[in-house]
């Protein structure tokens, strides 16, 4: 049971981690993340990096859609902008890895601001369509601006180098990708303790009221787009170093839907939501493959026969969560925490 957590100052009350138990668990999580690469095999390390990249992008989308209430289906296109920015900077200017990743975020943010302009006039489904249109325009640019993007065949990216060490394997990249994602998630968590974050939430809840309260909608909506695309750009940049080749087909439109689904399944408007959602959406199809594998001895030719069933099960799982836990996976975690807060008095 949680006791002795009374706060004496507002600052303490607003802290990210308010109890000793939370801090202890956070240390455990940090230790697990540090030790994981030494325990996991290449396959799981690859997935861990992929989850981290997807978490970064989903967290960005959550700032825009979950916290500011602006639906976007352009996240994949912003990631592509980041990935191409990295490919260009790395290939043409040879600038250092971390700078490229940061620059990728900035370039994507600039594009995000442009794409966000219609958000001042349209909301909801209309804005979703506007972002879809923007992503098709960007796709056209990726395909036809051959001198920068390499056209349809795309561009190769040399392995990232940090302090003279080549980061080519998932093992090496893990130590860069996971900390960057952790920093980004931490920044997002802190964002909503500031005026800017609260302004986003006010806009989401009722934009007219927010304006009456003195929040300039133009500035804050564009800021939300910029931040969200910055996250996507950095995620895209990490993606480029991870897969080492970027083509217009690397980030299909379905990827944008993937991120929106991740944020919704995880829990809109929570920090934990996109983390759980991205992990769920990335890992569940892989875990379902193990089910197919386990059925191998019983079911002849399980791989070919059961793979379509696996897709159906994945879809059904998403529907199941949306119906039975509309507030997302984050709510399940919150419920588990509440159980321990009250234990043993109410279970």
């Amino acid at each position: 049971m949680r006791i002795a957590t009374a706060k004496e100052t507002y600052i303490a009350d607003e802290g990210l981690l308010t109890t000793r138990t939370q801090r202890a668990w956070m240390i455990v999580l940090a230790l697990v993340l540090v030790l994981a690469p030494f325990v996991l095999n290449a396959y799981w390390l690859y997935l861990a990096c992929l989850v981290a990249i997807n978490v970064a992008s989903a967290t960005g989308l959550n700032i825009l859609t979950g916290y500011t209430g602006l639906v976007s289906l352009g996240q994949a296109a912003f990631m592509a902008v980041g990935a191409y920015a990295v490919a260009f900077l790395d290939g043409h200017l040879g600038t250092p890895f971390l700078l490229n990743i940061f620059a990728a975020g900035l370039v994507a943010a600039a594009v995000g601001v442009l794409v966000g302009v219609p958000s001042l006039r349209v909301k909801g489904l209309y804005l979703a369509i506007a972002t879809i249109a923007a992503s098709f325009i960007l796709h056209f640019v990726f395909t036809n601006w051959v001198s920068v993007t390499g056209g349809m065949s795309g561009v190769n990216v040399a392995p990232a180098r940090l302090f003279g060490i080549e980061l080519a394997s998932p093992f090496a990249l893990y130590f860069v990708i996971v900390p960057i994602t952790a920093l980004m998630v931490l920044a997002a968590a802190n964002l909503f303790r500031t005026r800017i974050g609260r302004a986003f939430i006010a806009i989401r809840d009722r934009d007219i009221s927010a304006e009456v309260l003195g929040i300039p909608l133009l500035q804050y909506k564009l800021m939300s787009f910029a931040l969200s695309s910055f996250y996507a750009g950095v995620a895209g940049g990490m993606w480029a170093y991870f897969f080492r080749v970027v083509t217009p087909e690397s980030f299909p439109f379905a990827t944008s839907i993937f991120f929106l689904a991740a944020v919704i399944v995880g829990g809109l408007g929570t920090i934990l939501g996109p983390i759980l959602g991205a992990a769920f959406m990335t890992l569940v199809p892989e875990l379902l493959k193990y089910v197919v594998e386990w059925l191998g001895p019983v079911f002849p030719n399980a791989g070919a026969a059961l793979s379509p069933v696996r897709t159906i099960v994945f879809g059904a799982l998403i529907i199941f969560f949306l119906v039975f836990e509309p507030q997302g996976l984050a709510e399940i975690v919150r419920r588990i925490r509440r159980f321990f807060h009250l234990w043993p008095f109410k279970t």
Binding site: A42, Y43, Y46, L47, L50, P170, F243, S250, P285, E286, K289, V292, G303, S307, R310, T311
Partner: peptide, 16 residues
């Protein structure tokens, strides 16, 4: 073998 759904990231995952 394993299914990739014709997606590059899944193909790489299967490879690994």
């Amino acid at each position: 073998y394993e299914d990739t759904a014709y997606k590059v990231d899944q193909s790489v995952a299967v490879f690994n």
